[in-house]
Design a protein around this nucleic acid. Structure first.
Length: 877
RNA sequence: GGGCGAAUAGCUCAGUUGGUUAGAGCAAACGGUUUACAUCCGUUAGGCCGAGGGUUCAAGUCCUUCUUCGCCCACCA
């Protein structure tokens, strides 16, 4: 240990710790093992296609902090890892790969395509899990789950069949969000609104019996006119009342269409007349149903116009738009084109503009589920942090809409529904069960065909908190670890995932799946932009780990976590430097303390004989321990790290270790120094697991798994307010003077030793030392001049009082004078302000007595301090 | 269009139910280092707390209006 390197190298140490964790598997959680109970977190399963990015790094660091902390506290802590099959995303990846080989999924066929998908999963599926290891995540890796594992599929089928039985799943023809590129339905959440600058085209629809006159309709999607089956006006709109029922002729294609009246129409918008395309617009669909209109689908699923589009058939939808506008213009039907900003829905996976499309899909009836979730939420479950998201969550539940869960892709859980030749539906967990149902119905075996569609990825993820534990089996894990305690995730998936997990939890387990939901910020670059591959501003966590270390990555990220997190390379230096400081402070101790000073706990300290500085640092440590624990419990991680940073660096290293240097022969003090640092390593461990565990092991003389060591217990008896006050004064005094710090010390008899440097101002401190002596009740103290520097100066300039002042310091004395003068003025100003306040009749009559007393005391203190400062000032000149 | 949030030092943020002279880290400038650490130590400078109005003995903190930014939701063709 004495030849321990003076610089911390995270690469070597982290690799070593990771190997040890792999061998010993310390993160494995066993149901029922701890008497203190469980602590459960489920990981937000990253997409199996994913590679670790900064968002994951933050998310997983936060989870790891809490998991390690709870584990140290004696809870049976389970952090459940896993990945999500990410239906559309994964299929897209593999399709791209196929495209490179000149293959398509249709060309390959469902079976072969699925083989390719599984092959891909086998080779690339563990990438992100491996990367999570490197971050130091203390997941129970043996339990790693994938949302398409066999037993997980059982859970998905169970959920579907159960909801179907309960009447909460239905199939129907509705307008849904359709992505023509992915050729699948999307849920409302998967079709994101994005602002776009479009046009509002005003088109003339002429009357059949009066071709010279016309009605003007405005549209942002002129190609949909090919599917128009009515024009609607508001029944109260006087301009159109007489025209209701009249027949119009659709431009370009000549189909006849009627004017209908519907309250939906806003007379104030555009011309007040709306073209109605029931098969290609959700509102028009509703109107179509109300008025019994014809539904004309003009488009193939891939966005190419079909034969209902007449001469425009075969054109892609936007090419068709262009062509139609051109023809309308040429034929004189286009009245005007006005620029129009509006929101367009886009596929959240491929950003393609979504087409409202009429098709037969499976839906979950959400109202009954949402009602229960809402009731639970209003009873306080789950708690959401930060609180401002609570309303967002609540509003979504209030305005709940049914969930379209079928997808026309292949990668995913197949809809567990079979049809007979007549189209009868048999919903069952297996084909055999479906067949049995069919036999009951028909009295004989018939041939069944399974629904070709798969389920929305989120239909499996919403079961994550209990399906990962083994549900629908009622095993010990489910019983012990459910419900989970905390869920850490990004606000983006509050609807996709969080709200739906709550619903599933209530529906299938009878209990909300987590107590707390912590929504953390987005990781951004230094300029505040979201990190993205396309912007090229993404910081790769793996690069940071190899350059600065995983500990540095974690510490810096947590330290910088406010609402959003702004990341740039130099921020990781803070974390790296901290780990190095920790390394060196430990090195210093190990080099300087005797073996018998390496004691186990504070009971080994002889408190009665302990020097002032050690009593001080022990007391400060106890307070840090208390506050850090509290901050972690409240999820205020950045605060916890700040406290630790300040305590370890600012208190322990900058002051205590420096004071220690004067009395390295005191074994009792060595014990204190050792104990405080050893415990500091413990409370730092959840944040920076690698370096702390390595050093802790060095201290122990054997390899330790720090997350399995007990969290230190706060001991109120070790809090020593007088010692804190006394050393506080010392520090106050010393801080004001350049370079005095290392010349201050407290000897084993609790006497202050002041070795004055070549700084004349220091001499003036005699007065302050007298005051300090009184305060500390120290019977005698030494004033000793003489370090190398002073001696050197003295040799050259003996006999002259100015020999204490090296030439450059004259300027410093002047500076010091200026500084004190400014301080005096400032304090006088403050004292005057308080005096004024005290003279204020309203203050005296209305402020609480203790506030007044405090203010009085403050004023007295300020004035007294000023007196002292003035004296010091006088002695300067 | 509806809702939510933010605005404090050059940057990132603290600032507890109104009650010290508004703090810290980073960056900057200056200075230091034979003796754990230059990934170190010290010092300095830098703020009408976004703007206006109000409540109060007292406002960074509470109320109100405005400005700017961010986020979420949304079927006005």
């Amino acid at each position: 240990m004495s030849d321990i390197a003076s610089r911390y190298d995270p690469r070597i140490i982290e690799e070593k710790r990771l190997k040890l964790w792999e061998e010993r598997k310390p993160f494995h959680a066993v149901a029922g093992r701890s008497t203190k109970g469980k602590f459960t977190i489920v990981i937000p399963p990253p997409n199996v296609t994913g590679v670790l990015h900064m968002g994951h790094a933050l998310n997983n660091t936060l989870q790891d902090i809490l998991t390690r902390y709870k584990r140290m506290q004696g809870y049976e802590a389970l952090w459940m890892p896993g990945t999500d099959h990410a239906g559309i995303a994964t299929q897209n990846v593999v399709e791209k790969q196929l495209a490179k080989e000149g293959l398509t999924r249709d060309g390959l066929g469902r079976e072969k395509f699925m083989e390719r998908l599984w092959e891909w999963k086998k080779h690339h599926g563990d990438t992100i899990i491996n990367q999570l290891h490197k971050l130091g995540s203390s997941c129970d890796w043996e339990r790693t789950r994938f949302t398409m594992d066999d037993d997980y599929s059982d859970a998905v089928k169970e959920a579907f069949v159960e909801l179907y039985k309960r009447g909460l799943i239905y199939q129907g023809n509705y307008i849904i969000n359709w992505c023509p590129r992915c050729e699948t339905a999307l849920s409302d959440e998967e079709a994101e609104h994005k602002d776009a600058n479009g046009n509002l085209w005003h088109i003339k629809y002429h009357f059949k019996d009066d071709l010279d006159n016309f009605v003007v309709v405005a549209t942002t999607r002129p190609e949909t006119m090919l599917g128009d089956t009515a024009v609607a006006v508001n029944p109260a709109d006087e301009r159109y009342q007489a025209l209701i029922g009249k027949v119009l002729v659709l431009p370009l294609i000549g189909r006849e269409t009627k004017i209908i009246a519907d309250d939906f129409v806003d007379a104030g918008f555009g011309s007040g007349a709306v073209k109605v395309t029931p098969a290609h617009d959700p509102n028009d669909f509703a109107m179509g149903r109300r008025h019994g209109l014809e539904f004309i689908n003009i488009m193939h699923p891939n966005g190419i116009l079909n034969r209902n589009a007449g001469k425009f058939a075969g054109l892609e939808r936007f090419a068709a738009r262009k062509a139609i506008v051109k023809e309308l213009t040429e034929a004189g039907f286009l009245l005007k084109t006005a620029p129009h900003a509006h929101a367009v829905r886009r596929c959240y996976r491929c950003d393609t503009i979504v087409e409202p499309y009429l098709s037969k899909q499976w839906f979950v009836k959400m109202q009954p589920l949402a009602d229960k979730a809402l009731a639970a939420f209003r009873a306080g479950h789950p708690r959401i942090q930060p609180k401002r998201w609570e309303k967002v969550y609540e509003n979504w539940l209030v305005d709940i809409r049914d969930w379209c869960i079928s997808r026309q892709i292949w990668w995913g859980h197949r809809v567990p529904v079979w049809y007979d030749s007549e189209g009868n539906v048999f919903c069952a967990k297996s084909e055999a069960e479906a067949l049995a149902q069919a036999v009951v119905k028909h009295g004989k075996a018939v041939e069944l065909k399974q629904d070709p569609d798969v389920l929305d990825t989120w239909f499996s993820s919403w079961l994550w908190p209990f399906a990962t534990l083994g549900w629908p089996k009622k095993n010990a894990d489910v019983k012990f670890f459910y419900p989970t305690n905390s869920l850490f995730t990004a606000p983006e998936i509050i609807f996709f995932w969080v709200a739906r997990m709550v619903m599933a939890g209530i529906e299938f387990m009878g209990e909300v799946p987590f107590d707390d939901v912590i929504l953390h910020g987005t990781v951004r670059d230094a300029k505040g932009r979201k990190m993205s591959k396309s912007l090229g501003n993404a910081v790769d966590p793996l690069e940071i780990i190899s350059e600065y270390g995983a500990d540095a990555l974690r510490l810096s990220m947590v330290l910088n976590s406010g609402q959003d997190i702004y990341i740039s390379n130099e921020k990781f230096e803070v974390g790296r430097n901290f780990a190095n400081k920790l390394w060196n402070a430990s090195r210093f101790l190990l080099m300087n303390i005797k073996p018998e000073a390496r004691v186990n706990d504070f009971s080994a300290l002889d408190m009665a004989q302990l020097d002032l500085a050690s009593r001080w640092v022990v007391s400060r440590y106890q307070k840090a321990l208390l506050n850090v624990g509290q901050a972690i419990e409240e999820y205020h991680n950045s605060e916890a790290v700040n406290l630790l940073y300040e305590f370890f660096w600012g208190t322990y290293c900058d002051w205590y270790l420096e004071l220690m240097k004067g009395r390295l022969d005191n074994v009792n003090a060595q014990k204190a120094a050792y104990l405080v640092l050893k415990d500091t390593l413990k409370i730092l461990h959840p944040f920076i697991p690698f370096v702390t565990e390595e050093l802790y092991s060095q201290f122990a003389g054997e390899e330790k798994i720090l997350t399995l060591e007990a969290w230190p217990v706060f001991d109120k008896a070790l809090v020593d307010e007088p010692a804190e006050a006394a050393v506080g004064v010392l520090i106050d005094l010393a801080s004001g003077i350049r370079n005095v710090r290392s010349q201050w010390g407290i000897n084993p008899k609790d006497q202050i030793v002041c070795i004055l440097s070549a700084d004349q101002f220091a001499l003036s401190l005699t007065d302050n030392l007298e005051a300090l002596k009184r305060l500390l009740k120290v019977s005698d103290f030494e004033l000793r001049a003489g370090d190398t520097q002073i001696r050197n100066a003295a040799t050259g300039l003996a006999g002259n009082i100015t020999f204490f002042i090296p030439l450059g310091d004259v300027i410093d004395v002047v500076k010091e004078k200026t500084r004190i003068e400014a301080e005096v003025a400032q304090q006088e100003k403050a004292a005057a302000a308080i005096e004024k306040r005290l003279a204020n009749a309203g203050f005296v009559s209305q402020a609480p007595a203790e506030v007044i007393e405090k203010e009085r005391q403050r004023m007295t203190d300020l004035r007294a301090k000023n007196k002292e400062l003035n004296k010091a000032l006088a002695s300067l000149i």
